[in-house]
Amino acid sequence: MNQPASAYFIEERHDPNETHTLSVLVQNEPGVLARVIGLFSGRGYNIESLTVSETESQKHLSRITIVTTGTPMVIEQIKHQLDRMIPVYRVVDMTLTKRSIERELAMVKVRGQGEHRVEALRLADAFRARVIDATTESFVFEITGNTDKINQFIDLMRPIGLVEVSRTGVAAIGRGPEGM
């Protein structure tokens, strides 16, 4: 095993890692995304997925959805660290609310001929993926769903002739009538 590199990590953390989805409402001002990303890299947190876009242009609000992993203590730190940034309005742990929907969109390019094409279309149908581009030797599928579903679809496409994937990252929203 490696020697601990510093006293900060002398404690062996036995807590298992958890994956959490955080929704962060921020003032859409220059540099705000850099601040958030800098926080993650500077403090050694993980980013599994990051999605950001302005959601209320009149109020200059952007919504950042971050999927991150860490021990419960680290996840709590991440939330506090985000929350204390000046342009951050709110941080909601969508995983803790247990009432959230997560979606991701992916475009998946597959190349193949003959039987492979048929198989690709059949799988696409099963996953409710749409064909958004086609040539005689390729398809581009558009698929929406949670991360697991998209991962599974991509895994199935690999032996058929997966060329490349473009994913949006996770967007999340709570169920019910209330906003965050």
Binding site: I10, E11, E12, M73, E76, Q77, H80, Q81, D83, R84
Partner: peptide, 22 residues
């Protein structure tokens, strides 16, 4: 060493910065 820090105590922490807690 954090795992041997004051092992038997109940700890009260006053801080203005929530990120200092825990």
């Amino acid at each position: 060493r954090v795992d041997a820090f004051s092992p038997g105590s109940k700890k009260i922490h006053i801080d203005i910065d929530p990120s200092s807690i825990n």
